[in-house]
Simulated scan of single mutants.
Amino acid sequence: MTPSGILESALYVDDLDAAEAFYAEVMGLRQIAKVDGRHVFFACGEGVLLIFDAEQTIHPPKPDAKLPVPPHGTTGPGHLCFRATEAEIADWTVRLEVHGVAIEADFEWPQGGRSIYFRDPAGNSLEIANPKIWGL
């Protein structure tokens, strides 16, 4: 038995407002949930991108919590890769430039597929890549 896919991925930030603006305005993701000062969640394809204030996810839930989600998370920059076609990656390079987001790397992988790398306001490493980079 194996999982059928990844439902959610999480990134951790130190400025939730800046992250919320970046993922909504620059990345064009649709916000689906928010708790001020703690997290903001976005729909992304068939999955969900969870953006947490790193300081808030280290605290255990209150004993009477309705949703007793255990503490989880990390501090420091993480990495996330978004899926795109070659044509979409070309469009993303233009969109990122329009929004003043620097592209750190742009290259073709030896096995096929292209990746572009850039950072969100918290310093998380983001990538947009063609699934060919993994033979998918």
Score class of each variant (00 low, 15 high):
residue 115 S to Q: 04
residue 106 D to E: 13
residue 25 E to K: 09
residue 73 G to L: 00
residue 64 D to V: 13
residue 127 E to P: 02
residue 52 F to G: 02
residue 129 A to C: 08
residue 19 A to I: 00
residue 56 Q to M: 07
residue 34 K to N: 14
residue 73 G to I: 00
residue 39 H to S: 10
residue 87 A to Y: 04
residue 75 T to R: 12
residue 35 V to M: 12
residue 115 S to W: 03
residue 25 E to R: 09
residue 115 S to L: 06
residue 74 T to A: 11
residue 40 V to Y: 03
residue 8 E to T: 06
residue 125 S to N: 15
residue 106 D to G: 02
residue 46 E to N: 14
residue 18 A to T: 00
residue 63 P to H: 09
residue 38 R to G: 02
residue 1 M to E: 06
residue 27 M to F: 01
residue 90 A to F: 04
residue 92 W to E: 08
residue 127 E to H: 04
residue 44 C to F: 12
residue 38 R to Y: 10
residue 78 G to I: 02
residue 6 I to H: 00
residue 109 W to A: 14
residue 103 I to Y: 04
residue 43 A to W: 10
residue 64 D to L: 12
residue 116 I to G: 03
residue 119 R to M: 06
residue 83 R to N: 14
residue 55 E to Q: 06
residue 131 P to Y: 09
residue 71 P to E: 05
residue 73 G to K: 00
residue 31 Q to M: 15
residue 70 P to M: 09
residue 11 L to E: 10
residue 4 S to E: 07
residue 88 E to F: 10
residue 75 T to S: 10
residue 51 I to S: 02
residue 134 W to K: 12
residue 36 D to Q: 11
residue 109 W to G: 03
residue 102 A to N: 15
residue 116 I to C: 08
residue 116 I to Y: 02
residue 17 D to Q: 04
residue 21 A to L: 02
residue 124 N to W: 03
residue 16 L to C: 06
residue 40 V to S: 06
residue 45 G to L: 14
residue 72 H to L: 10
residue 63 P to A: 06
residue 114 R to N: 12
residue 70 P to R: 07
residue 112 G to D: 03
residue 134 W to F: 13
residue 132 K to V: 09
residue 18 A to P: 00
residue 35 V to N: 07
residue 58 I to K: 09
residue 113 G to I: 04
residue 95 R to H: 10
residue 10 A to F: 07
residue 17 D to A: 07
residue 59 H to D: 11
residue 114 R to M: 09
residue 47 G to E: 07
residue 91 D to K: 12
residue 1 M to Y: 05
residue 66 K to E: 15
residue 13 V to T: 00
residue 44 C to N: 13
residue 88 E to P: 14
residue 26 V to Q: 01
residue 52 F to L: 08
residue 63 P to N: 10
residue 120 D to N: 02
residue 80 L to W: 10
residue 93 T to I: 11
residue 10 A to I: 01
residue 6 I to T: 06
residue 133 I to C: 06
residue 127 E to R: 00
residue 85 T to R: 12
residue 45 G to T: 13
residue 106 D to L: 08
residue 135 G to M: 09
residue 33 A to E: 12
residue 74 T to W: 05
residue 106 D to N: 12
residue 105 A to H: 10
residue 37 G to Q: 01
residue 72 H to I: 03
residue 72 H to V: 02
residue 61 P to L: 08
residue 38 R to F: 12
residue 63 P to I: 11
residue 64 D to E: 15
residue 107 F to P: 05
residue 21 A to D: 03
residue 100 G to C: 09
residue 106 D to W: 09
residue 21 A to G: 01
residue 37 G to M: 00
residue 47 G to T: 08
residue 34 K to E: 15
residue 117 Y to H: 07
residue 42 F to K: 04
residue 68 P to G: 06
residue 35 V to W: 05
residue 90 A to M: 10
residue 6 I to V: 07
residue 82 F to W: 01
residue 54 A to T: 05
residue 92 W to D: 05
residue 28 G to W: 02
residue 94 V to A: 13
residue 10 A to P: 01
residue 25 E to S: 10
residue 14 D to Q: 14
residue 71 P to N: 04
residue 63 P to R: 07
residue 116 I to H: 04
residue 97 E to D: 15
residue 48 V to F: 08
residue 86 E to T: 13
residue 78 G to S: 08
residue 116 I to L: 12
residue 16 L to W: 03
residue 121 P to G: 05
residue 28 G to V: 00
residue 38 R to Q: 12
